[in-house]
């Protein structure tokens, strides 16, 4: 090893290495330039084009825009169309309720992770990371198998004599909600675990030594400290659920129109570029508004804990 290092030191660097050295020793922005170029060409410019298409009347000829004038008409058309309101409201309700339920079911798992032994921790990590490595469509298909007319749930309930005829769950709002919560649960749990495992475990011990009950410790120590994790988890789950079309398409039976399915139809089936652009922009802006609200709430409650520390 040492000989190799000495040998390497006395070998004069080749041209390639000299160039690499020049690029690296400056500690400059150069290594990031390829990524910046690609992101600009494939993300920034397309977003700018999307924006310009949404806010203009344009004429197309042979795939090129031949005239374009600034206009709010597509936006006002969208905002006065009740279909838009119904669709975006449905998406928003679904995403918000999914986020809340994911928090409700995910938080106890994170608490178990915090208090459990090494094997419990390992089990929780495997069970939350493994689903993220398989396709969302495949995991949604599982709910088709469970909730279908002759599915697992109905067979079990019929055999147990709890119901006389098969329940109709598929293609309802409930099927979509159940699928959404189960599929996005890992996305909520992981950030919670990440924040909780950074806690100083002595805080929990101190609280219990001072005579606090477990519930008291959870409420007054663990919960306030995990606010950043709740914020990150909620933001991730909300963004995914607000803009998904897999679960609504499969479990909603194809006629469950949400924002994403509407955009898909406008863009791919009816080739309405202006409508598609405006809907995409509305989706992005409304999504961003909720994310800002989540960030502000997280900040507010984090400051509150800091105040108690002082």
């Amino acid at each position: 090893m040492a000989e190799a290092a000495i040998h390497r030191r006395i070998t004069p660097p080749g041209f390639g290495e000299q160039v690499a050295d020049a690029l690296l020793s400056g500690r400059g922005i150069w290594p990031a330039v390829p990524a910046i170029v690609v992101l600009t060409v494939v993300a920034v410019i397309p977003f700018a084009i999307l924006l310009s298409l949404g806010f203009s009347d344009f004429e197309m000829s042979r795939g090129a825009i031949i005239s374009q004038t600034f206009s709010f008409s597509h936006l006002t058309n969208a905002l006065t169309d009740p279909l838009y309101w119904i669709t975006f409201q449905r998406s928003m309700n679904l995403a918000l309720s999914t986020t809340a339920l994911c928090l409700l079911f995910g938080y106890p798992v994170a608490y178990l992770f915090l208090t459990g032994g090494p094997w419990t921790k390992r089990l929780i990590l495997v069970l939350t990371i493994a689903p993220l490595l398989t396709s969302g469509i495949v995991r949604t298909y599982a709910w088709l198998v469970i909730l279908g007319g002759r599915g697992v749930l109905n067979s079990a309930l019929l055999q147990a004599g709890l119901i006389d005829q098969a329940l109709r769950i598929m293609n309802t709002h409930w099927a979509v909600l159940i699928g959404m919560v189960q599929i996005h649960l890992p996305v909520m749990i992981l950030p919670l675990i990440a924040v909780m495992s950074r806690h100083d475990s002595r805080l929990v011990e101190a609280s219990e030594n001072l005579g606090a009950s477990r519930i008291g410790t959870l409420r007054t120590v663990i919960l306030p400290l995990s606010v950043p994790g709740i914020g990150t988890g909620s933001a991730l789950v909300f963004t995914l659920t607000y803009t998904t079309f897999v679960v609504p398409q499969i479990l909603g039976g194809g006629n469950y129109l949400n924002a994403a399915t509407m955009i898909y139809e406008q863009v791919v089936f009816s080739l309405e570029w202006s409508k598609g652009s405006v809907s995409s922009l509305i989706l992005m802006v409304t999504c961003l508004m909720v994310l800002v609200a989540i960030a502000l709430l997280t900040n507010h409650f984090t400051k509150w804990t800091k105040g108690h520390d002082a």
């Binding site: 990524a35 910046i36 992101l39 494939v42 993300a43 410019i45 397309p46 977003f47 084009i49 999307l50 298409l53 795939g63 090129a64 825009i65 963004t239 607000y242 803009t243 079309f245 994403a260 955009i263 898909y264 863009v267 570029w273 598609g276 652009s277 995409s280 922009l281 989706l283 992005m284 999504c287 994310l291």
Partner: peptide, 23 residues
């Protein structure tokens, strides 16, 4: 800057790239 495209909903990026590409 690197984070931005990841924060934007995937379908919005998809639509934007589709339109920009077509032009």
């Amino acid at each position: 800057f690197v984070l931005v495209p990841h924060m934007v909903p995937g379908i919005v990026l998809g639509v934007a790239v589709l339109f920009a590409g077509a032009l």
